[in-house]
Structure formats: C-alpha cells, structure tokens
Write a protein that binds this DNA or RNA. Structure first.
Length: 295
DNA sequence: CAAGCACCCTGTATGC
DNA sequence: TGCATACAGGGTGCTT
C-alpha cells in the first residue's frame, strides 16, 4: 500500500488519537509479521506514555516517554487504526495496543504480513537503523543535491524507488512525478539536463503534496489512521491507466517494467530513451515473482 | 555499481 | 464451479 502520502496521512490521523495516551498492554497474534514480535517488548511498552508520532520515509515512529520508540512499517497492506476495544477484531489483525484504561486500542492489521513492528530502546539505535536505509525526505531538497543524485547510469525509476537516495517515493508517485516532469521513467538519470533535474525535483514535491492533500491513494486495502480511504487515485494521470488516454495529449498510456515494477507513461509527453528499456510489455513477459513454483 | 530475480505473504481478477 | 496463473502500494538479499 503505502507510500509517503499514505503514511503521512496515517500519522496525521493518529496524532490526536494517540499522543498523551498510555499503552496499557499488548496483544500479539499467532502469526508473525516480517519480524517476530519480541515478548520482552510487552513489558517495555506497558505503562509507556506516547510522547509523539511522526513519519520518516515510509516508516511510522511512535515515540514513548521512556525514551524508546515503536517503529512500524505498513508493507503493502498494513493498516494502523484506533478502535473501541469492543469493536469486532478484523481478520489479519496482528497487534493490539490497549490504551489508557482499555476502552480504546491501537490495532495493526496486515493481510500480506510484509509489514513490521519493532521496539527500539534508544534514539541512537533507531537513528542508526533508519540512517542506514533512508536518504533525505523529498521536501525542500537542495537542487544541487538532487542533481548529484542524478549522476548515475541508473534509470530514473530505479533511482526514485531507491529509499537510500530519497525517502518515501514508491511505485505510484514515481510514475506520477515522471509524468508531471515530462520525463520517461526509463531515462538514464545522467542524461537529465539541469532544467529537467529541477523540473523533476519540483514535480516530486508537487505530486506528494497533492497526494497528502487527498489523503493518499486507495487502490485496494489502504485506509488512514481514522479508517478513512484516500482519494488521490482519482487524480492519477498515468498510474494504473494503461490503454487510457493521456490527460494532456490524448495519446494512449503505456506500461513497461522498470526496476522490476510496472511503470506507466505517455510516450508522447515522456519520450522514451533512444535505445533500450522502452519496449512496452508483452503478455507473458516475465517479471519478478512470476512463474515461481509455489511452496 | 547496477540490474534482475527470488522471496516474504494473501486476496483478487482473469482465463480456461 | 473449479483450478491455475498473474498481479498488487515494499524491503531485502543473492546472483549475474
């Protein structure tokens, strides 16, 4: 599911519902997420007051008054919402954090279980973990820094999806930003002019800002921290619009595979690079995960 | 260094 | 209806 705008929406929704409240106890499901839950964290969390909730890239950080931080990632299908404890517990709910006197609880639901929940005892450990994985946030970037990022033979798509280059951009918003900037996602990054670099940098900000304003995009499972869906999927120009007309020129939106991901573009507004990586996908063409034998 | 693939999972859509 | 296959917003690790 969730890229930066969706995670930001979850955090904004949860902030008034969580900050200042105390986690009373944790209920852990039988099936593990990406990593197993450490039972020692139960004791560390019980009685811990929530000091703040924030976002870094696609990660959610719940800072506790005792100095520890609960770090969550929603993977592809994660949902983090506050419910009344008496509400029916949906299937695939893996963690429940009882709040205050137990009338309400924070629930982590994740169908595919690509998400994760981990407790970091100190800020130093948390920072080390995140700094090893994440580049800067994509807002207010120094144009010169962004130009430096482009000094690579990698495709724009691969670069934008690389969380160590730039934190928070995923498959949807990479495609939408490239469209807005008028550049093909398969372009080698080092073929971008200074002008194009600045246009793309600004396009990323614009797309993410507008998506946050629309509470993110709901394709399948995504809901915000309040349970409300997003609306930005109604404003997609290219993502998921294969075969439909380009909003700008009326040409047909194409799809190809770049960096192992479906990549959507308008061949007129975003001229493909001259050689390689511009062929449209043919039925049956292999992609990651396809043709693998089931375990 | 970069690209490609496999893998972690489940649900849904589609074709036969 | 049933079955097989392909695909999905992400991150990680291995091989080419």
């Amino acid at each position: 599911m969730p890229e930066l705008p969706e995670v930001e929406t979850v955090v904004r929704d949860l902030r008034p519902l969580l900050v200042g409240r105390t986690i009373r106890h944790v209920t852990v499901g039988s099936r593990k997420l990406r990593h197993a839950w450490d039972s020692a964290w139960d004791a560390a969390l019980s009685g811990a007051k929530v000091r703040a909730i924030r976002r870094r890239g696609k990660w959610i950080l719940v800072d506790l008054a005792n100095g520890s931080t609960l770090l969550l990632h929603l993977g592809m299908t994660g949902q983090l919402t506050v419910h009344a404890a008496k509400d029916e517990v949906a299937d695939h709910t893996h963690l429940r954090f009882a709040l205050d006197r137990g009338k309400d609880e924070l629930r982590f639901r994740d169908i595919r279980r690509f998400g994760s929940a981990t407790l970091f005892a100190t800020q130093a450990e948390l920072d080390a973990f995140l700094n090893a994985r994440l580049g800067p946030e994509p807002f207010g970037l120094d144009p010169a820094y962004f130009r430096d990022l482009l000094k690579t033979t990698r495709s724009l798509k691969a670069l934008l999806l690389d969380q160590t280059a730039l934190a928070g951009v995923g498959n949807i918003y990479a495609d939408e930003a490239c469209f807005l900037a008028g550049v093909h996602p398969g372009r080698a990054a080092n073929t971008m002019t200074h002008g194009e670099s600045e246009t793309l940098r600004a396009a990323i900000e614009t797309v993410l800002t507008n998506a946050i304003e629309g509470r993110g995009s709901t394709i399948r499972n995504y809901v915000g921290g309040s349970g409300l869906k997003g609306s930005y999927q109604n404003r997609f120009n290219v993502y998921g619009r294969t075969g439909q007309p380009c909003p700008t020129c009326g040409g047909v939106i194409q799809v190809t595979t770049l960096a192992g991901r479906s990549s959507h573009f308008c061949a007129t507004c975003q001229p493909p690079p001259r050689r390689s990586k511009n062929s449209t996908r043919v039925a049956g063409r292999p992609t990651a995960d396809r043709g693998r034998k089931k375990g």
